[in-house]
Amino acid sequence: MQGATIRSRPVYPGLAIAPLARRHIFALEGEGAGALLDIAGDLTPEVLGRSQILYVARGSLGVGHHGALQTLGAAFWAAPTVQPLLGRLDVELSRSHMGTRLYLAGTEGFIGQAMQVAAAHGIDPASVITEHRGSRARRVQCVHCKGVTEGVTASPFTCGHCGLNLYVRDHYSRRLGAFQGVNIDAEEPGAVPPPEELYL
């Protein structure tokens, strides 16, 4: 079961505009669009003029939020899937300077992956502004074969890479952007309890 607090898991305090930033880059996934739309009142023309919105609809209920985001009036780019979005984020950051602030909103797995891109550019994770929106599904690394499974909603589950039965440990690696999956029936092979949908 999920603990009350997981000390290795980041906290996602919610999007708030850093008023002094010279440039704002928003990387949003699915329902994460709502995190920005909810603070649209804070998006002055000055802020919008310095903003770049990168969006991928994955994980959205319904059709996504392209229209609403585009209406904000900032530079907008939509990615078909997460991978190209991360690639574009990498390019944007490589041409950015100190004074640029990064905002991430979406599922925990998405935030974790975007955070890895940011860290490679020397951005301290504590300076990234984050909000968890959408599914509570977890991104899980199998500690045995190192394969990562996206969108895990139940524990235990079967590793899509090596086939071991894994339970999802309440331990999160920022470097990997993933929770840890550990074989549940190592001591008594076959003794696997029924999966519980814990992370919907």
Binding site: L20, R22, R23, M98, G99, T100, R101, D124, A126, S127
Partner: peptide
């Protein structure tokens, strides 16, 4: 000056 230019405290 750095804060006014948007630098985060961590830097």
């Amino acid at each position: 000056t750095a804060r006014q230019a948007g630098w985060p405290e961590q830097a």
